[in-house]
Design a protein around this nucleic acid. Structure first.
Lengths: 241, 241
DNA sequence: CCTCCGCTGTGTACAACGTATTGGTGAGAT
DNA sequence: ATCTCACCAATACGTTGTACACAGCGGAGG
């Protein structure tokens, strides 16, 4: 009866780090994670149900609980799993490293849009792969004469911008996909009954002016990089580096 | 089942046993919204279930559906309701307006921490009060010689940073509260078994250095404003305004 | 060889959720 | 006085996360 359940405080990762208990099992954290990610990628996060996951793995509904203590654990495992694909190039200056961090994160979130729908606890859980990325990014900020607080402020500013921007970008993308529109122009002109209605009230002249004269409304990448450059330029200006 | 009304000899007591006659028009979108917000503020977003809401309103479980078409609608209603408290001062320069937008949003999210846990669709839904804020913020960017795309890029950069930063800040705060620690120092030194474990691996020297030498780890406001200044400075630098 | 033990996956069960549906009741229009 | 319909009640269904007890089987000790 001395299972890991007796030590609830022990983090998931501690368990995973210990040598694999038995090479004979049909299930493994790896298999659980890949199956869950596959479901989420294909059908969205809502489709990731413990039962659905078990079905995907060809086991009984309760079987995955041997490897994850609950759904929260599962989400953390999924996050860690996909962040394994995010690799930061080394040997770059701090700015290029931060830029790469941002662009790579964007790519990852676009490949796994469900990452932007996670409950915040799972979103910023301290999984090994995420820790490794943070470590690498922080270390690129050493040797610039910054104190620890300043270094972290840089990392966090970039990270905050990226997540905020991607939450928005992905929400718009989801909205479009869910409505069956693939093209952004149609989105703006025909989509949101919401938006139409708001505009008809005539209460938002500046907004309306934007809608009718802007030319990069659909260039998500330009929008992302423009904002990112603001952040990076501001770091240069604020810290004189 | 025939009602008691069909039985003329029904004693008074029988009728009194039944739930109070209930005056008509007990519900309204306003009452629904305030009740839901009250629950979320007091017990977190998870406590906001349709049944709980109905109980709070003293009404049958399905009653609120007369005013909101489902739970998504309810969340939108809640968002709009609390954003009514966010007022942007007019007659300020663009930078002070953006700054006020950020600080006021932070205050709002700290007062209603569940705002940071909303599913993204509800988070950026186009509710009237949110539209009004966007309109006001955008109009503060007019007359600077910016085209529509640039104006929107400024607004979105600030907004993205704010939401990303607050997601993080609130997640940390939730973590602390949920563990019963009120003080940040304890948090870092004793909290997350996760963090402890990660540090014990010795794989994150830069991170560890931060933890041991930083002095503003608990100064959430400083962190927020520092990052915000990066963004604003970067806008100045990037757009030359 | 047999026997026991502990890890692994199974089966069943339950409470809580969102919400479809149907029914009764009273306020205002006719 | 009657009709009508907005309002709320009552009940029920399907799905979810997960607690709990049990079965099969591989390797250690005799």
């Amino acid at each position: 009866m001395a299972t890991e359940k007796d030590n609830p405080g022990e983090p998931l990762w501690a368990r995973l780090e210990r040598p694999a208990p038995a090479p004979r099992q049909t299930l493994s954290p790896q298999r659980v994670a890949t199956a869950a990610v596959k479901i989420a990628d294909a059908e969205g996060l809502d489709a990731v149900t413990m039962r659905r996951l078990a079905t995907e793995l060809g086991v009984a509904p309760m079987a995955p609980y041997r490897y994850v203590s609950g759904k929260d654990d599962l989400l953390e495992l999924m996050v860690n799993h996909v962040y394994d694909d995010l690799r930061l190039p080394g040997n770059l200056g701090w700015r290029e490293t931060m830029r790469a961090l941002a662009l790579q994160t964007r790519k990852l979130l676009l490949r796994h849009v469900w990452l932007a729908q996670l409950p915040p606890t799972a979103m910023l859980s301290l999984t090994p792969n995420r820790m490794a990325i943070a470590e690498k990014a922080l270390s690129a900020l050493e040797g610039l004469g910054l104190d620890a607080d300043a270094m972290m402020s840089v990392f966090r500013a970039v990270d905050a911008y990226v997540h905020g921007a991607m939450t928005y970008e992905i929400a718009v993308q989801n909205l479009m996909r869910q409505q069956g529109w693939s093209d952004g122009g149609k989105l703006r002109s025909e989509l949101a009954p919401q938006m139409i209605w708001h505009m008809q009230t005539g209460r938002y002249p500046t907004f309306q002016h934007y809608l009718s004269t802007a030319t990069r409304k659909d260039d998500a990448r330009w929008q992302f990089e423009t904002g990112l450059d603001y952040v990076l330029d501001g770091i240069v200006a604020g810290l004189d580096i």
